[in-house]
Each structure stands twice: as structure tokens, then as C-alpha cells.
Simulated assay, not measured.
Amino acid sequence: MIKLLHVEDDADIREIALMALEMSGEFEVLQCNSGNDALEKVSEFAPDVFLLDMMMPGMTGRETLDQMRKDPALSAVPAIFMTARAQHSEIEELLANGAADVISKPFDPMALSEQIKQAIEKSIQRT
């Protein structure tokens, strides 16, 4: 099982993503509704991959990742961002700063688990 930490402030998107990932049978998912919530739970969960919304109130996905990366045990965990503002320059910046992938919203629930597995594989190949 792939342990995935999903951080998303929109309850509907969390629900759709959870259903899609559970249907694959390959993921153990912990969902958080904010960056602060994720920071409280991430160490105990010890995820294999992060799936982070970019735009959230309080702390963005990028800021959340920066905070989690301070923990040496989490520094190499692949991070995938989801964003509705998938501008080429923003995607390039995220990838240049270590993101394993960027998934545009709205996303295809039927393709989500495969996209995540491919991003993990790319991340492993880069190390």
C-alpha cells in the first residue's frame, strides 16, 4: 500500500480524490483540510507521497511542503501539487523546486491513481 497524505481545503475535492484512490486498492490515504492540520499529523502517518493543493487559506501547499521538508524523515518524500491555476510558468517553477508532478484541476478521478504512481516512479528515477 502506498501511504498518501492529501492536503486539500475543498471537501468535495477531498471526497472525489478519496473515492478514486480507494477504488484503486493501492493507497492508504490520510486527508487533511489545511496545511496546519497536515503538519500536526504528517510525522505519525509517515507518508510515501504528498498530494497538496496549491491554493489554501492560511498556508499554501508550497508553504506546507516547505514546513514538512524541515523534518529529515520527510525531506525526500515525493510531492505532487494540484492546482486550478496551472499556468506553464507556475508548473515549471514547482517542478524546478522538486515537485514530482503537477496535476491540473479539474482532474480526472479515473486517472488520478495512475498519475500519482507515475510521479512517484519519476521521482525515484531522479534520485
Rank of each mutant, 00 (worst) to 15 (best):
E63A: 15
L112Q: 06
I80L: 14
A84P: 04
G58T: 12
M56R: 12
T83R: 10
L74G: 08
I91F: 02
G61I: 07
M82H: 07
A100E: 01
L65R: 14
H88E: 13
D53V: 13
L51Y: 09
P57A: 10
Q115I: 00
F50E: 11
R69V: 11
D66P: 00
E63W: 10
N97F: 02
T83K: 11
N97R: 04
A84Y: 06
L94S: 11
V77Q: 01
M55W: 15
A86E: 12
T64D: 06
A99T: 07
F107I: 08
V102T: 10
F107D: 02
E93F: 05
I80G: 05
F50S: 12
S113N: 04
P57H: 13
F107Q: 03
A73Y: 03
L94G: 13
D108V: 01
T60Q: 07
A111Q: 12
V77K: 04
E63I: 07
R62F: 14
I91T: 13
L95W: 01
Q87L: 10
S104M: 07
E90W: 03
D71C: 06
P106G: 04
A100Q: 04
S104L: 03
E92G: 00
L52W: 01
E93G: 05
M55A: 14
L51C: 12
M110P: 00
S89L: 07
L52A: 14
P78R: 12
L52R: 10
S113L: 01
L94D: 11
L95V: 06
M59Y: 06
D108L: 03
E63G: 06
L51A: 13
F50Y: 15
K70A: 13
A79Y: 02
D108W: 00
I91W: 02
L65V: 10
D53I: 11
M82K: 10
P106A: 02
A84K: 08
L74S: 11
I103G: 00
L112N: 03
L65Q: 13
N97I: 02
G98H: 03
D66Y: 03
D101I: 01
Q87T: 06
L51S: 08
D101H: 11
F81N: 08
S113Q: 00
P57L: 11
